[in-house]
């Protein structure tokens, strides 16, 4: 259940930004998450209220945008959809691929109410 650790890290980051901008409340947070990040979105959603209780982000809406797993093939040059446990090229099936999307774990966006 490392999602709770992640929520505390998120809260620390959000509180720092809120303080820098003299915000009294965090209204909305947008997170970009890929299946290869190792983070389970539903657990993140469950853990967030526990981490954020009594903070200025306690009522914030948590938007999670799931990135698709996409790979670029160094052999045939194609970019194709993939899955977390099969990252081979969807066209030529080579494993000489590079993940282009799907491993994100980013705080993308914040919406704040200022004092």
């Amino acid at each position: 259940m490392h999602e709770l650790s992640l929520c505390f890290a998120l809260l620390e980051q959000v509180e720092t930004l809120a303080a820098q901008h003299h915000a009294i409340r965090v209204e909305r947070m947008t997170i970009h998450l890929g299946p290869l990040s190792g983070i389970e979105p539903s657990l993140l959603t469950t853990a967030w209220p526990i981490a954020a209780a009594n903070s200025l982000a306690a009522t914030a809406v948590l938007d999670i945008i799931i990135s698709p797993v996409r790979v670029y093939c160094h052999d045939c040059g194609a970019e194709s959809d993939a899955t977390a446990n099969n990252l081979c090229c969807g066209v030529c099936h080579s494993y000489h691929t590079q993940v282009r999307s799907g491993d994100e774990l980013l705080l993308a966006h914040l919406e704040l109410t200022l004092e």
Partner: peptide, 15 residues
Amino acid sequence: GRVELTVLKPLLNAN
């Protein structure tokens, strides 16, 4: 009237 910030930083930035 709310402020919107584009952050784009790793969630585990501190770690």
